[in-house]
């Protein structure tokens, strides 16, 4: 048989089942179509109010004014010299640091425990999700009672153990109040973090750990050399989600301390709320909000980039 014969295209009719515009035709259009509802909702609920706030941050707009007055970067100049706003940034930083690190350590520890085979594990796993299920204000009130100076269980336990001599008014001291809001948030976030870690732990190759044990690794070496490196992608996602969530935290702090005592737990979200709905200074509140969003952009950018890259 001559080679030329082989190289000639096949002169045959196209199957009637063929898709005329190719195998992938229509996929792109379907994708955009499916995105539309989400984009519409995002535009109305998030994008429009954000742009509006961005605009308002350039105006003076208080309760006694009939119309906003354009003052350029005036609000930002005020913020730059305002000790209170800077303090809110500092309080936010402390709050985010302690909640994120605390949740990370405890969530990972709890996940490691719940990943061990033992009787009653399934029940304990289910119960571990409880803080997640409860409305956050309910949790805040539960913790409010725990920290209560006169009836709180925390004081009762510490007194019983002899660690304190008289009841502490936790929520009335700056450190105590910070401790309370941080612990509440950690307690609330552990289930989510734990679920992430548990999922990660469950697809850790068992034979890899077996191999490490045979190679001479004890528990600590297995954790350091195998479990943590395996969880690295999960760890990054969890940290970013945690930082974003903690930067935005409002409800538990508001319910527990209202930002006090004085301004000890006034994070940015509380500060914006106070400026907007207690001082009724919408323009100033918007300006703080814009700066607040700016701090959120960095972790959010990391997170989105990871999602897109599929890391």
């Amino acid at each position: 048989m001559a080679l030329t014969e082989v190289n000639r295209p096949l002169e045959l009719p196209v199957s009637p089942l063929a898709n005329r515009r190719g195998l992938r035709a229509g996929q792109r259009r379907t994708g955009i179509l499916l995105l539309l509802p989400a984009i519409a909702v995002f535009a109305v609920v998030i994008l429009y109010p954000f742009l509006k706030a961005l605009g308002l941050s350039l105006f003076r707009y208080t309760i006694e004014m009939t119309a906003p007055e354009f003052i350029g970067l005036g609000n930002f100049r005020t913020i730059a010299t305002s000790g209170e706003v800077w303090n809110a940034f500092l309080v936010t930083a402390i709050y985010v640091l302690f909640t994120t690190v605390g949740t990370l350590v405890l969530g990972l520890g709890w996940a490691l425990i719940l990943n061990q085979p033992f009787r009653g594990r399934a029940v304990l796993r289910s119960f571990s999700l409880l803080p997640w299920v409860l409305p956050s204000t309910v949790s805040a009130f539960i913790w409010g009672w725990i920290f209560n100076a006169r009836f709180g269980v925390l004081n009762a336990i510490l007194l019983e153990l002899g660690l304190i001599d008289y009841p502490q008014a936790w929520l009335s001291t700056p450190q105590g109040a910070m401790l309370a809001v941080v612990l509440t948030k950690i307690w609330l976030s552990i289930p989510l973090f734990m679920a992430f870690f548990l999922a990660g732990l469950q697809n850790l190759d068992r034979e890899q750990v077996d191999a490490a044990r045979i190679d001479g690794a004890g528990n600590w070496a297995v954790l350091r050399d195998h479990v943590l490196p395996h969880l690295r992608p999960v760890l990054i996602v969890v940290v970013v989600i945690g930082v974003i969530g903690n930067l935005q935290q409002f409800d538990t702090i508001f319910a527990l301390t209202g930002g006090g005592p004085v301004r000890a737990t006034t994070v940015l979200s509380i500060e914006v709320y106070k400026q907007a709905f207690e001082q009724w200074d919408i323009g100033f509140a918007s300006a703080i909000g814009v700066l607040w969003v700016a701090t959120l952009i960095a972790p959010a950018f990391f997170y989105l980039r990871m999602l897109v890259k599929g890391a």
């Binding site: 190759d205 034979e207 890899q208 077996d210 191999a211 490490a212 044990r213 045979i214 190679d215 001479g216 690794a217 004890g218 050399d225 195998h226 490196p229 395996h230 690295r232």
Partner: peptide, 20 residues
Amino acid sequence: VPASRRGLAMVFQSYALYPH
């Protein structure tokens, strides 16, 4: 005697190499 102290080496079907 725990696995880590037996002084044995094992080759696994899945190789069980440390991916990182």
